[in-house]
């Protein structure tokens, strides 16, 4: 449990560094360190499927971000306005307070860490193997019980990639 909290603190520090640093390259690297820590957290919480996906996607995203960062000029906007910063800090503090108040209300109602509600999911866990005959319960839930979600996810990826290809391609096409 101490290791878990240490990793969580490490991730928070990495996120703050990624936002606050001026250099884009070090920002990307700290995002990568954060993702690897997240994958170790998934392993500690005994979710190997998620850990594999997290590591692999993190590596791929890191390569793409590095490719974008290294070849580009640094386009961060450096100048700041003094009054604007005071305004932004005040608004940020107000919303942080509002978030704390509502979060304290919500977290009292939520189930304890490690004791989820499991109303529908209990049926997946107990009867999933008999229904689907797949040993990996995560894949059984993704592709058997919640296949609609996976179809929607595949559609989202397809649409995103088609959009990216259309925007990024060099030559136009006459219609």
């Amino acid at each position: 449990m101490i290791l878990l909290y240490g990793l969580l603190i490490f991730m928070i520090i990495g996120a703050v560094i990624a936002i606050e640093t001026k250099d884009l390259l070090s920002s990307v690297i700290s995002v990568g360190a954060m993702g690897l820590a997240l994958s170790i957290v998934f392993l500690l919480l005994s979710a190997p499927d998620l850990a594999i996906v997290q590591v692999v996607v993190e590596v791929l995203a890191l390569i793409m971000m590095l490719r974008l960062v290294v070849t580009r000029e640094d386009v961060t906007v450096a100048h700041r306005y003094r009054y604007g910063e005071v305004f932004a800090t005040t608004i940020g503090l107000i919303f942080f307070g509002v978030f704390i108040v509502f979060a304290s209300i919500v977290f009292k109602e939520m189930p304890e860490f490690g004791n989820p509600l499991l109303r529908v999911s209990r049926q997946y866990i107990t009867e999933g193997f008999d229904i689907s005959h797949a040993a990996n319960i995560v894949t059984a839930i993704l592709l058997e019980f919640r296949a609609y979600d996976t179809l929607g996810e595949a559609t989202v990826i397809f649409a995103a990639i088609v959009g990216a290809l259309v925007i990024l391609r060099g030559k136009g096409r006459n219609i």
Binding site: D49, I52, N136, V138, T139
Partner: peptide, 18 residues
């Protein structure tokens, strides 16, 4: 072997892209 061991289509596909 996504339905027997941890992993699956998404993780394997990303690895194949890698």
């Amino acid at each position: 072997f996504g339905h027997i061991t941890p992993g699956g289509g998404f993780a394997g596909g990303v690895m194949l892209a890698c």
